[in-house]
């Protein structure tokens, strides 16, 4: 099957700005699904609100476009009622870690078998370029004309500490990595977080004098380093698989509980 078989062509060209990294994530998410040979009917995409969350509408899977930040809460419901389906939740940085911060850490704590893709462009693009909890200190945004004083979250450290059993980071420059990491995350039996650093040339790039999309991609190429080579380059942002561990999965534990309760119930009557 080609990429075109997985998308809803009637909604194209998409609404994202020229050079938006979210399109590249969409492109390689489809390729990851194609690599795994999954049927379109086996996948549920649950998204919240924001530029990144539009991704669900463009894909020809089962899709659910929900409330801002609450995508993981809806996804938990979908997964618990139909555990055999692959649930993928694409989120923006604000959607995942500001508005949906609580849902994010609790989904990780439960280790429910959901794939969370955090498309981190460090800005609220759809609403006009307000700074987000991932913008980081000294970045300029519409709401921070003199630079923000807020430190940023480290998505990888946060997800790891909260209990996610697969945590990876990559960028939109490293397209092969996006495909590989997303495929690994879908297959992983537990809560999987893939942070994809994605460029927003319209708001983040322009406000922070980072140039156009091409220039921003070059920054990802030069400013990041594979995890194993990071000790030699501590200034750069590491990418790769940070965590891959086994923890009891939530749906399985819930099923055991239901079965135990039914057995005990039968013994009582």
């Amino acid at each position: 099957m080609s990429v075109q078989d997985y998308i809803r062509e009637r909604f194209f060209p998409h609404i994202w700005c020229p050079g938006c990294g979210h399109g590249t994530v969409l492109n390689n998410l489809v390729r990851a699904v194609e690599t795994l040979g999954l049927d379109k009917n086996e996948i549920v995409m649950v998204s919240g609100i924001g530029c990144s969350s539009r991704i669900a509408g463009y894909l020809d899977f089962h899709t659910l476009h929900t409330l801002h930040g609450r995508a993981l809460a809806f996804a938990t419901g979908v997964k618990l009622s139909r555990p055999e389906l692959n649930v993928i939740v694409p989120m923006g940085d604000g959607d995942a870690l500001a508005i949906g911060g609580n849902h994010f850490i609790h989904a990780a704590r439960r280790n429910i078998n959901i794939t969370a893709i955090v498309m981190n462009n460090r800005i609220y693009g759809m609403t006009g370029g307000q700074f987000s909890p991932l913008s980081g200190e000294a970045t300029t945004a519409t709401t921070a004309p003199f630079g923000t004083i807020d430190p940023d979250f480290d998505t990888v450290a946060l997800a790891t500490a909260a209990g996610a059993s697969y945590v990876a980071r990559t960028t939109t420059y490293h397209v092969q990595e996006i495909r590989k990491r997303i495929a690994e995350a879908i297959v992983h039996p537990g809560f999987a977080v893939v942070e994809v650093m994605s460029q927003c040339p319209t708001y983040f790039g322009r406000k922070n004098k980072q140039g156009d999309a091409v220039e921003m991609l070059r920054r990802y190429k030069e400013g990041t380093v594979p995890l194993d080579k990071q000790p030699a380059d501590p200034e750069k942002i590491p990418r790769g698989v940070f965590v891959q561990r086994e923890r009891p999965e939530y749906c399985k534990r819930y099923e055991h509980l239901v079965q135990a309760a039914m057995t005990d119930g039968a013994a009582l009557t």
Binding site: S2, V3, F12, G19, G23, T24, N28, Q176, R179
Partner: peptide, 13 residues
């Protein structure tokens, strides 16, 4: 196929 994979608009094959 770098262009095809990088294209944010899925416009290249």
């Amino acid at each position: 196929k770098q262009c095809e994979q990088r294209c944010p608009d899925l416009a290249i094959q």
